[in-house]
Design a protein around this nucleic acid. Structure first.
Length: 235
DNA sequence: GTACAGATTGAG
DNA sequence: TCAATCTGTACT
């Protein structure tokens, strides 16, 4: 199977395009569980086991500052918290919400343009064969923006991380597993979640998810058919 | 220093 | 539907 890390040019396009095309891409996160000890042999040497967490992105939301009132960068607002949102496309902007949940965002467009895509849900691949009640058990760990960050162990230390170069997190295409939903050219566009304070911007259909995917956080929206499915192919 | 909102979640 | 939870942010 071939894999390809998404290049810079994938991210530096219009945010709505990136938000739609991120559906079906794979988020890869090698994790080294805290110095994990295993009996390594007669001398008792310790062995470090690296685990690779992988999830297919199935739900996203676009935030297009500075015009978007729901964006942290509305009207060019810039603070210590959201400054990484201004980085060139392909970087991570991560922040803490409600005092306890990290929110993973991927910057888009060119440097200085505060636009990003919130990753809201993943279809986890790791552990697929080991967990019997796979869908019900794993679904609950990644079907929300706060939960998926907990699952792949992200925190403030990832703020500003470059997805095109990082060794601890990146996005990739896979040649052997094109998402059927995308091949069929079907995604759903819906209102974004939790931003009712944003007036007319709250009504924009800037949330995207794979139709009928069981890992999506909340299903509701308008099904849109892609007239140019070839543009949304994963590889 | 103090007040307060919030791109959520999980229980009911 | 509703409230727990707590950091960052803005303001005094």
């Amino acid at each position: 199977m071939e894999t390809r890390r998404l290049p810079r040019k994938f991210y530096t396009r219009p945010t709505l395009t990136v938000a739609r095309e991120l559906l079906g891409k794979y988020l890869v996160r090698p994790i080294r569980p805290r110095p994990f000890s295993e009996k390594g042999g007669a001398n008792g040497a310790k062995k470090i086991v690296t685990k690779k967490m992988i999830g297919k992105i199935v739900e996203t939301e676009a935030y297009i500052g500075p015009k978007d009132k729901a964006s942290h960068a509305y009207q060019w607002k810039i603070t210590p918290r959201n400054k990484t949102e201004y980085l060139e496309g392909g970087h991570i902007y991560i922040y803490l919400c409600y005092g306890m949940y990290w929110q993973l965002n991927i910057t888009t467009a060119k440097a200085g343009q505060p636009e990003c895509v919130l990753i809201r849900a993943l279809e986890p691949l790791n552990g697929q064969k080991r967990i019997k009640n796979y869908e019900l058990g794993i679904k609950k760990l990644t079907n929300g923006p706060g939960k998926l960050c907990r699952w792949i162990k992200l925190d403030k230390s990832f703020d500003g991380e470059d997805l095109t170069r990082s060794k601890r997190i990146w996005l990739e295409d896979r040649s052997d597993s094109l998402p059927a939903q995308i091949k069929k050219g079907r995604i759903v566009a819906a209102k974004r979640i939790g931003i009712d304070y944003a007036g007319k911007w709250a009504k924009k259909p800037w949330r995207f998810y794979l139709r009928d995917n069981p890992f999506v956080s909340r299903m509701a929206g308008l099904v849109i058919r892609n007239r140019h499915p070839q543009r949304w192919r994963v590889s």
